[in-house]
Design a protein around this nucleic acid. Sequence first.
DNA 1: GGAGGTGTGTTTAGCGTTAAAATCAATGTG
DNA 2: CACATTGATTTTAACGCTAAACACACCTCC
Lengths: 367, 367
Amino acid sequence: MPDQPAAPGPSSRGPAPHGHVTLSDVARYVGVSAQSVSNALNNPQRVAPETRDRILAAVRDLDYRPNRSARALRNQSSRLIAVKVEPSRDDRAALLLDQFLHALAESAAGAGCHLILCQADDPADEIKAYRELLHTTSVDAFILTSTHRDDDRVGALREWGVPFATFGRSWDGDDELAWVDVDGRAGIAAATGHVAAQGHTRIGFVGWPLSSEVGRDRRTGWQETCESLGLDAGRHAEVVDDFDQGRRAAHALLDAPDAATALVCSSDTLALGVLRALSERGLRAGPDIAVTGFDNSPAAALTTPGLTSLRQPLEQVAQDLVTAVEDLLGDASPRRRHTLLDPELVVRESSLRGPLPVGGHPQKENP
Amino acid sequence: MPDQPAAPGPSSRGPAPHGHVTLSDVARYVGVSAQSVSNALNNPQRVAPETRDRILAAVRDLDYRPNRSARALRNQSSRLIAVKVEPSRDDRAALLLDQFLHALAESAAGAGCHLILCQADDPADEIKAYRELLHTTSVDAFILTSTHRDDDRVGALREWGVPFATFGRSWDGDDELAWVDVDGRAGIAAATGHVAAQGHTRIGFVGWPLSSEVGRDRRTGWQETCESLGLDAGRHAEVVDDFDQGRRAAHALLDAPDAATALVCSSDTLALGVLRALSERGLRAGPDIAVTGFDNSPAAALTTPGLTSLRQPLEQVAQDLVTAVEDLLGDASPRRRHTLLDPELVVRESSLRGPLPVGGHPQKENP
DNA sequence: GGAGGTGTGTTTAGCGTTAAAATCAATGTG
DNA sequence: CACATTGATTTTAACGCTAAACACACCTCC
């Protein structure tokens, strides 16, 4: 047994000749068994304080980092969370994914996890890709986005017994599902209330087909607000999330007699289409017709006039998703299974009669 | 030794009681050693054709998938590529990252690799994060974006001897570096040529500070084109990539006597700022002043009027980057170390005197 | 003074894979 | 017929880590 430790100093035994510093390098350095080093790091209470300190000092001295692959192999757990990246279309304004991924990566890092990307072109492929990841990499958990009623992915993951959380609530009232979502109804209600406060009484709505629960939810936000304010809720259109569809819907709504003077939209994409329609009709967004969107995409901030929109608290969403997954991983039942967050209204020129009050800076209202 | 194979059919021996199918499961099933199964998969020429076929059939029967962690541990290589995600700002139009990541994930999947995300707030953190990844996960390679002269990250990675490729060329003429980039100069030249073809003779430029090589490169594209067309290249501004800076720059340029009638911009963000300035002056983008951007962000497509811009071929960039790191991983020297791709001009209303020729559809011109 | 903790440490074993060495049979060669 | 040569396959060992079992000293308590 080699027991010539005693001589500290990083030079006594270089941090492994060719590869990385391993547990046994540290063990040899301190003069204990590898297991003790492992314990000092993972079960500190199992090793005597004095030894533990010596070990931890050595860990710092040698700059030891546990090897993830070895850990994963041994523990059957990789601390890797899989997320799918969408094939982003440039005809959509909302590239939330981008911000979302960053926020997610940050939260995951805080939990000692990493994100691994997964890519698929259709839902069937996606499930296959998930299976592949599970089989090969021992991915620990999944985070799903934009789930819908009877989502096959949810079914598959649950069947496999893998921890996962979704950005998007369980519309079929699945109480077991861990989800985080943004309250679209409240957001749209806030936007509707905002334009009403600007003096508009004929407020229209351009939203998504009612076959999507999100579409229904958002329209409800508009409808309820109108009704509670004693306003007519008859002016609305339901179209798919597409710039040109928004544009056409706006034309149709504005062609009607006694037309709306404000249009609340389900997305920035639709709202930007509406802005285009206004321009085509020689109308000014803001002074003539108020317009609001949803998602606070870069396009909303940078278009002219600025588009009033609703910012989703993606950082919080990401944080809560990671927390949920972490809880599931630690087999503890989640502290909170469902989280519904409020979006934040970001007011810009498109919904104001005059210029922005505080020069240039958008004004924020929390609903 | 259990040798009751002979009975195929997926029911004979379930795919492992609780866990996954392992090499030895397959081996037992066929009646050979685990090593032979490994060989059949990785060194087919080493096993007799007849045995190999039986093994491969079993692999299919049992749906065997090699365990990535075990492989990574054994081979010291994880087939994981790290990419940093930027803390995307919503005051920037170009969220390329989104599309880029998707394309990258797709290309990586084609090479049997996965992407692992990495997140950092400043360059020092980033290097630390890279080191951490290397130490712990045996990440195989890195892909860097927006590299600049004397990039510390490049230095660090090279020092560690890790394979990596960059999106962004080596501006300091580092021939060893494997990079892929988009030819900003050619792109800007195409945009400049395009507005000149619309009859503009006083073409201005709003770009980035010349301290950035990309900024210099793009301005050169404008300048050279002006000069080759016999136009004055005196109207220009250099500002950081910010909406409001673009707006101010436009006001300044348009206040000048004998002002520009066209403004070519280094980014969509700046161009959108310019559009705002035009609106503030009661000028129409297109009929009055031609404007072009760079990146073909969603905002460019969806703003009104549509912003003429340059689309970066991100799919190709991603593909080439993955090919490059793949080559580096296979210790073979890259087939091609440097790739310079041309962006594609996407013409919209902002650079046209009248409406778009083909109703609604942007017209594409490849420079 | 043995039976039972308790606290600290070590040894053993194995996660799934694969390079390298070892085995064994079949095939030349002098 | 002894003796390399080749080819197919198996055995061994190791990648780095940690749960579980084990060893040992030191208490404590009837």
